[in-house]
Design a protein around this nucleic acid. Structure first.
Lengths: 243, 243
DNA sequence: CGCGTTCTTGACTGCTTTCAAAGATGGTGG
DNA sequence: CCACCATCTTTGAAAGCAGTCAAGAACGCG
């Protein structure tokens, strides 16, 4: 969490959300003001707590101001799939249905700070925000599609490298951390549940890639050691252009 | 394709779209009229032709009136992932960005009939359509999330059964075919590319399931032979409630 | 009838899982 | 400051699911 000295107790920092959203669309002063105002109605969810349960009604769209969360589904025999990771600046529950319902359970991975997403319709202007929201939804769909490609057509080590690069880029886009070195609040079992692998195999692959000098995933931290080789392993540049 | 005798040449049938959308929200007479009008601006895309290419600007949202299409991504070494199947009544390119861009290539699987999606904003009323569009987007997201779960945490045979059940249900919801027996315009290689398997393995699994009396996937047709056992194999009922 | 596509089959390889146990790590309370 | 506990990581051996390669059979179409 970043600091804003005097006001911390009154409203949390909006920096990550602002950085991410203004990377998606040009925001005006009203957009920024609306965000600051919305942040005053923030709430904090402790790590490991469920934020939404599958089937819950969605009261309002929210912005994740700080922390990590994940959406997951659990099969009846206990197998778990982590579907999507939510990072600072991400939007939650954006949909225009009259009685929307959560499609999946969402859980806090770290302590999480959220606030209501300012509604561009009720604001006078706010076109910048509306545009950013739309772009954010597209980006989320893009991540889901990437996740499908990863699981369907990539090997274990490709999946890991690909996901680390993607996540680093997302964190950098929100100003949370550099793309090549960031805190990673996921244990290996969760990485496995996300990438369709067992924790044992994640462990072996991670070690192999460390030996190869590709990347280090250890001690709650991910570090890209050789970006060039990582990128060419998963053809990452091609995808950046496709942004 | 279904028939509407005298008018076929002027505008195609809207039946599938109407059936699907009114299952998602209550449509009024204006909604229905708007759909009929939009259908006059229909276009036909022959099988195998690309409908959209990754990166193409999206001119307008469209409705798939008839036929099958798919969204896919191809890795540089030739591996292909089929991300999502589009069926009659599905919406394409719904997004509120000012300059939206196609995230993935989309290809016609059969001959396809499309028309512009009537815009609820420009109509006087059209709240029913707007609601149906929102529900449709949620449903599409649900399918992408399911696809992730399938690929990440299901065995080969589970993936096949699960996908056949889901597709049958979607076709039934649009009034295209009964959920247990429908034309399947996918060769086994495509089923493999969709479910993260090789065509050889799809073939073996399909044969094994036919021997077991679970389902038949052959000759361009899928038939659920024992729905009860299929459903319990993939815990399908649980998911229907979660709708 | 001939050709190209799709399906089928077999043998072999190998990536990933499974099971089990030992080794680190970090936080807590004495 | 250290013992202790729970959690997380690491390791090994064995098994299994799915992939690969290659060739033959079936199918559909012109």
């Amino acid at each position: 969490m970043s600091s804003r000295p005097a006001l911390l107790a009154l409203s949390p920092s909006v920096d990550f959300a602002l950085t991410r959203l203004s990377g998606l669309a040009a925001l005006g002063p009203d957009d920024e003001a609306a965000l600051h105002e919305a942040a005053q109605a923030f709430s904090v969810i402790p790590a490991r707590r469920e934020i939404l349960k599958e089937g819950d009604p969605i009261r309002q769209a929210r912005i994740l101001l700080d922390g990590w969360a994940y959406r997951s589904r659990i099969l009846p025999d206990g197998r778990r799939q982590i579907l999507h990771i939510l990072l600072p600046g991400d939007l939650v529950g954006m949909c225009h249905q009259s009685t929307p319902v959560a499609l999946t359970t969402m859980t806090a991975l770290t302590d999480v700070v959220m606030c209501p997403a300012p509604d561009p319709c009720t604001m006078g202007k706010g076109e910048g925000l509306a545009e950013a929201y739309a772009a954010s939804r597209m980006l989320e769909e893009k991540h889901l599609l990437h996740q499908i490609t990863r699981l369907g057509r990539m090997s274990a080590s490709e999946r890991i490298v690909d996901w680390v690069l993607e996540t680093g880029e997302r964190l950098a886009a929100a100003g949370v951390a550099p793309a090549d070195d960031f805190a990673l609040p996921l244990i290996q079992e969760m990485i496995g549940d996300m990438l369709g692998l067992t924790s044992v195999h994640v462990n072996r692959m991670v070690q192999a890639m460390l030996r190869d000098g590709l990347l280090r995933v250890r001690g709650g931290r991910a570090t890209v050691l050789d970006r060039k080789r990582c990128e060419q392993l998963v053809d990452y540049t091609r995808r950046r252009f496709a942004r």
